[in-house]
């Protein structure tokens, strides 16, 4: 299982990095603030709602940031340090190497997400109305979103410098939903066949914003249709697969 071996090594290495300490500090700060506020305003539903909302946002954001930062570093770092040569000299294809790296970065994001959400659930009572199933769906969709964004990070790490990659990927992840809406609004105002075609063409870019349904968790009592969740997971998996395949193509051609 060379893929799993690469993933395991990368995962353990990621745990040793300072990025994880940042996560732990964030968790500590959140726990401290949440405890202080809950002590100060016991039973206040608005405080609970705000803390729960901030907890979800922090967990989603920190998981995505950690995954992308790790994904952006993996291949350039291995190349810069020269450690990629002994790795590829082993019975390990470049595709397996990339898959292992992707798996590790994704898992770091998933573990971060789950840890943070666990802390949120332990500290703060969920706001009412609340659906446990919707919460589960939120976590599942977010996990799918992390896979797609990590794969995009890996892909871009083979094409652009690390800092630019992080900026582009995270900028895209957090802002594309908003930018897409603005562009679509502009196109709908201009009208015409070309505008409609351009609007349709924009769907080539993945909509990772729809995999973030934290807002529904905070305001809706009923879970989303499971068929829709399944469709969105296939959508996220599809983009992750396409990005990884494109990354493999680029990596195969890459002179190391």
């Amino acid at each position: 299982m060379p893929v799993w071996l690469v993933a395991q090594t990368t995962f353990l290495e990621a745990l040793r990095r300072k990025d994880v300490y940042v996560l732990l500090i964030l968790l500590g700060i959140y726990a401290l603030v949440a405890t202080a506020l809950l002590e100060g305003y016991p039973g206040d539903p608005d405080v609970q709602r705000v803390l729960f909302s901030i907890g979800l946002t922090f967990s989603f954001a920190s998981a995505a940031i950690l995954s992308v930062v790790l994904a952006a570093r993996q291949v350039p770092k291995e190349i810069a340090q020269g450690t990629i040569l002994p790795l590829l000299a082993r019975p390990l294809t470049r595709a397996q190497f990339l898959a292992g790296k992707f798996l590790a970065c994704w898992l770091v994001g998933v573990v971060t997400l789950w840890l943070f959400l666990l802390l949120v659930r332990l500290l703060v009572s969920p706001p009412q109305p609340f659906s446990e199933w919707l919460f589960v769906q939120t976590v599942i969709l977010k996990t799918g979103g992390l896979a797609a964004v990590t794969a995009i990070g890996i892909l871009l790490s083979l094409a652009v410098p690390e800092t630019l990659n992080i900026t582009l990927t995270l900028g895209y992840y957090f802002l594309w939903g908003l930018i897409f809406n603005i562009i679509q609004y502009g196109l709908s105002q201009s009208g015409g066949l070309v505008a409609r075609a351009v609007g349709r063409l924009l769907y080539v870019f993945p909509h990772l914003d729809v995999l973030n349904v934290g807002r529904l968790t905070l305001s809706q009592a009923a879970p989303v249709d499971w068929a829709l969740v399944a469709g969105l997971m296939i959508y996220a998996a599809g983009y992750a697969a396409v990005a990884l395949l494109a990354a493999c193509n680029l990596f195969e051609k890459r002179w190391i």
């Binding site: 939903g177 908003l178 809406n181 349709r200 063409l201 769907y203 080539v204 993945p206 909509h207 914003d209 729809v210 973030n212 349904v213 807002r215 529904l216 989303v224 829709l228 469709g231 969105l232 296939i234 959508y235 599809g238 983009y239 697969a241 396409v242 395949l245 494109a246 493999c248 193509n249």
Partner: peptide
Amino acid sequence: RRWALVAVGLLILAGAGPLVVEPMAQNIRL
């Protein structure tokens, strides 16, 4: 062939995108 596969994959996802994206986007769009 691999690049062709990437292109086909993107086209399929872009075509199917609105079907899965829009129902959820309508719920969460700001």
